[in-house]
Design a protein around this nucleic acid. Structure first.
Length: 764
DNA sequence: TCGGAAATGTTTTTT
DNA sequence: ACATTTCCGA
């Protein structure tokens, strides 16, 4: 079957409209990737050379997937010639070939956020500024935002509004820090993440021949996740597409969740005004979720004012109701979620990989991790500290970085005395002073240590270090990346140092470095595919891995429960999804409730979370949670009160989130953690099975471990009943109870609050 | 100059 | 609660 025949009317329209600007508004689960890949395949089928197609995606993984899918559609390997990748990785590649125009070495180092902050910290200290006022985080944020808005340090110093903001915040020196930072990065031959965009823009605007080259190279441009682009990306796209104007942007304003990174939803809201005759196609049919899930998502997002009008619909089944669960603590929350996973696996034959636990912040993963491990359920955590942020990996990479680019002082000072070789703080400081006095690089000072009057033994040590690096640099010319890396580990003594540490962590560190070496070997030894000419140098490797993220790790197929932030879950889907931690201050985050814009972004985040689910969705809330080491009480998230009750079930409600009228007073007296403020929840319609039962006044639940088959019990909602059977495991017994009023129900004993009425058990 | 203890900051999300 | 930084004594 031809790929065009698999598309619905709107999808097909988006694929076949290939001349002129096109905006595709692609609702969640509406087949966005399908459209993008089909469009590329269609272009190529119509004779467009893949060398002229540029496709920018949000993650490397998305790019690779897309490439593979196009290959499959066309049945040939032409797709390898596409220019496809993230903004950052594509621009890094382009910058590499023209870096010298901007005065950077082709092997420029890419600083990640940690590197950047480390440089900033040093500058703040050198300027004798107080780190309390000039917190590296804040300063970095400020500079990052400026760059993402294409404001260089010179412009920053002229920009009254920004200067005033800094003044008012008591940080008048940020403009100066920015200047120092930019100069330092340049001297170090390094670009940070934001530079990859900013310098690309500078390159295109200052060198018309370069602009011309790429404008004619990239005749067709496709942009994925357009709602999450920032002004720098916007400007670059505008420049690159100016000649052919064959720009296709795909996105969903309702899923714009990266404004903290400088993304602006304006790009997508205003695309229609950017060009004459913009074609707009809306994909509104959802193929992913059940009707219930989609209904909830639609209702939630409707609370936002700022959005492009659209309404998602689906032909899928109605599905289960959404489960809303309140628990007393994060411990209970984790236990509930993990038990529910076990139960679903058992009852509905799901695999581990069918489940995702989504949270607002990485720190929430811990309690789930503990419970999953206890229950022997394999899991994968995305995010947090990535492999490449581990200290031992950064140390090793620092050696390689210095070999490739000895101007990179950040890396140089990281390793100069690690493992210890007697170049202490004092010597390091002296080197720095000499370098700035003579206006030469630190590396130059070290190379000529003998000339600068160091003590003899120190000069010798410096010499030995320099010789080691130089030998590695020589190897670079004849040997492949892996051989150089292996030798670097040996010559530096780093591998030996790690090997000698026999503590548990030490062994793990050693293994991590081995894993890194394996990865480098794999990189060097992967043969070039036909027609492909990849750069196998160490420099190319380092630039590539700087831009890798956890999301790119291909663990999706392994049969594990996935844990990740909602941000990391963007673009993914799972049969069963748990959205946890729905509490005021956490989700929405306390940092994001000060303006309508911030709050609406949090709501979009909630929308993204909901729409990840295909079949079943749980939303959980914990009344108590540890934060900064002490326990905090939280109100239920305001988003809970925005849920449409007709699609919601509350199988477990330790906090009585939803109070039924008849139980109102009862709930008040027995629920110590009840929040008296939160009465805004719309009342649930009573369902046929929940005939109201008024619990006896002295109702006090008994320990579930006492429950036996045959017992008569009382349930707060369902009234009196008899336990028919108990199955499940010991930690999570599931009882079938025949209630007088509402018939047989399966109930998880550890959560149900049951009172034993009479224990004439074992009768059956 | 080093190692261990005390103090301090951190948690919003990521290329 | 945890990690990182700073402080302090030998």
């Amino acid at each position: 079957m031809h790929f065009l025949d698999e598309l619905n009317e709107q999808q097909r329209e988006a694929v076949e409209y290939i001349h002129g600007p096109l905006m595709v508004i692609a609702g969640a689960g509406s087949g966005k990737t399908k459209v993008l890949t089909a469009r590329i395949a269609y272009l190529m089928e119509r004779g467009v050379d893949p060398f002229h197609i540029l496709a920018l995606t949000f993650t490397n993984k998305a790019a690779n997937e897309m490439k593979a899918r196009v290959e499959r559609m066309l049945g040939n390997t032409e797709a390898r010639n596409l220019y496809i990748g993230t903004f950052h990785s594509v621009f890094a590649r382009l910058l590499r070939s023209d870096a010298h125009r901007l005065g950077y070495p082709a092997n420029f180092t890419i600083y990640d956020t940690d590197d950047s902050k480390s440089v900033l910290k040093k500058i703040i200290a050198e300027l004798k500024l107080d780190e309390k006022h000039y917190r590296p985080n804040i300063v970095f944020q400020r500079i990052s935002n400026a760059k993402n808005s294409l404001i260089g340090w010179q412009e920053y110093q002229q920009y009254h509004e920004l200067l005033q903001e800094d003044n008012r915040a008591g940080r008048p020196m940020i403009a100066k820090i920015y200047e120092y930072y930019a100069r330092r990065c340049f001297q170090n031959g390094a670009m940070d993440f934001d530079d990859l965009l900013y310098q690309m823009y500078v390159l295109l605007t200052q060198f018309p021949d370069v602009l011309h080259k790429y404008q004619h190279k990239f005749q067709y441009i496709l942009i994925d996740e357009y709602q999450d682009t920032n002004p720098a990306q916007y400007a670059i796209i505008k420049l690159l597409g100016a000649v052919h104007e064959n720009i296709c942007v795909v996105g969903d304003d309702a899923q714009s969740i990266y404004s903290f990174r400088g993304a602006t939803i304006r790009n997508i809201l205003q695309f229609e005004k950017d060009y004459e005759d913009v074609k707009v196609v809306k994909l509104e049919q959802n193929y992913r979720s059940t009707r219930n899930i989609l209904a909830v998502a639609n209702e939630v997002i409707a609370y936002n004012k700022q959005q492009l009008p659209k309404k998602l619909w689906t032909q899928n089944d109605e599905g289960e109701k959404i489960k809303l669960v309140s628990l007393l603590s994060e411990y209970d929350e984790a236990r509930f979620v993990v038990d529910a996973i076990a139960e679903q696996k058992y009852r509905n034959h799901y695999n581990n990989k069918d489940f995702a636990i989504l949270y607002r912040t990485n720190s929430q993963s811990r309690s789930f991790e503990e419970h999953l491990r206890r229950m022997n359920i394999p899991y994968t955590i995305y995010g947090g500290i990535s492999f490449y942020q581990r200290k031992e990996i950064k140390d090793f990479l620092a050696y390689l970085r210095v070999v490739v680019n000895p101007l990179d002082e950040e890396s140089l000072f990281r390793i100069i005395n690690f493992p210890q070789r007697g170049i202490g703080e004092v010597t390091q400081a002296k080197i720095r002073v000499l370098a700035s006095e003579h206006k030469i690089s630190v590396w130059d000072v070290m190379q000529r240590a003998q000339d600068f009057g160091f003590r003899q033994n120190i000069a010798e040590t410096l010499d030995a270090f320099v010789t080691m690096i130089k030998n590695l640099q020589l190897m670079l010319e004849t040997e492949n990346a892996y051989t150089v890396a292996l030798q670097a580990g040996k010559a530096s003594g780093l591998v030996k140092e790690l090997y000698n540490d026999k503590s548990v962590e030490g062994i793990a560190r050693y293994e991590n470095v081995q894993e890194l070496l394996n990865a480098i070997q794999e990189f060097t030894e992967t043969p070039d595919e036909e027609g492909e000419l990849t750069d196998k140098s160490l420099g190319a490797y380092l630039q590539q891995i700087s831009l890798l993220t956890d999301a790119d790790k291909d663990t999706a197929e392994s049969d594990t429960v996935k844990l990740m932030t909602i941000h990391a879950a963007k673009g993914l889907e799972f049969p069963c999804v748990f959205v946890v931690g729905l509490e005021e201050g956490l989700f929405p985050s306390a940092m994001s409730i000060n303006t309508r814009e911030e709050l609406e972004e949090e709501r979009r985040l909630f929308y993204v979370a909901i729409t990840r689910a295909k079949e079943r969705l749980w939303l959980t809330y914990a009344a108590n949670r540890y934060r900064y080491g002490n326990q905090m009480q939280n109100d239920p998230s305001r988003f809970i009160s925005e849920l449409p009750p007709e699609y919601i079930d509350t199988p477990v409600d330790q906090v009585q989130l939803i109070r039924r009228v008849s139980q109102n007073m009862f709930a008040q007296q027995t629920m110590p953690f009840e929040s008296s403020k939160n009465t805004s929840y719309r009342q649930v319609q009573s369902t046929p099975t929940s005939t109201v039962h008024v619990p006896s006044p002295d109702f006090k639940p008994d320990d579930f471990r006492l429950m036996k088959v045959g017992m008569k019990v009382e349930h707060q909602k369902f009234g009196y009943g008899q336990i028919v059977s108990i199955d499940g495991n010991a930690t999570n017994p599931i009882a079938t109870i025949r209630f007088e009023l509402s018939g047989e129900k399966k109930i998880m004993l550890s959560y149900a609050r049951l009172r034993i009425v009479s224990s004439d058990a074992e009768a059956s």
